[in-house]
Every structure is written in structure tokens, then in C-alpha cells.
Amino acid sequence: MLLIPCPYCGARDQTEFGYGGEAHRARPTDSDRMSDAQWAHYVFMRKNTKGVFAERWVHAAGCRKWFNALRNTATDEILAVYRMGEPPPGGFTDGLPTPAGEPAIGSGNDGSTVALGAFDPGAGGDRP
């Protein structure tokens, strides 16, 4: 159970919140010219970061506002919360050591890159 600090209401129990997945994913402005593969990449593929991760939460049983949080996915520590539209605060981008000291790659980190290999969504075409 997490104690999540809502930027409007203060620390509240996790059961009051809903999870919104990865933050800062901008909707493509030229979607009419995108291939199906590029669109699918935008819709379905998410980072699977181990370490500091920017994600969205909604305080569903409280103020019902969305906000962003920086969470260390390895330790579940919430490092910062900030409002929608604001850039993530700096100082956390290097990632913190995980409890067992696993390597960043090969243990679930950066999953979409691993799954897609060298696939470049900007190049168009189908998945390799």
C-alpha cells in the first residue's frame, strides 16, 4: 500500500487513487500521415522503466484531479509530485540504486526497446 502525496489534498491512501500510466506522452500531431505500425507504437508501447519513472495518477476519491508523480519503480518510493502540464523536476534522472543492485538492462528495464529490437517507429513499415 502506498501513501501518495496528492499535490492538492496531501498524503492519502493509495485506494483513493487511480493509475494513469506513463506521463508526458504527446499525441502525434501528424497522425493522418502515420503508418499503422507507427500508430500502434504510439498507442500500445510503453516504457517499462526500472528506477525513476514519470507517471500519472488521479485522486479519484478525493479532489478528482490528475497529477504527475516521479516514482522509483524498484522501491515504490514516490520522489516528487507535480501538476499536469509541468515538466518533471530534475535531480532524479540518473536513477537510484535498486535494492539488489541489478543491472539496468536485462531485468525488465527498457522493455519496449528490448521487445522491438532495433525497430524505429519513425521509419514506418511493419514490425521486424
Binding site: 479519484a60 476519491a61 478525493g62
Partner: peptide, 10 residues
Amino acid sequence: AVSTLLAKAT
């Protein structure tokens, strides 16, 4: 006053 959850009800 505060909005919260009582069991499963808001």
C-alpha cells in the same frame, strides 16, 4: 470536511 473512501464508497 474531506472527500475520501468509506469501505468501497466515496
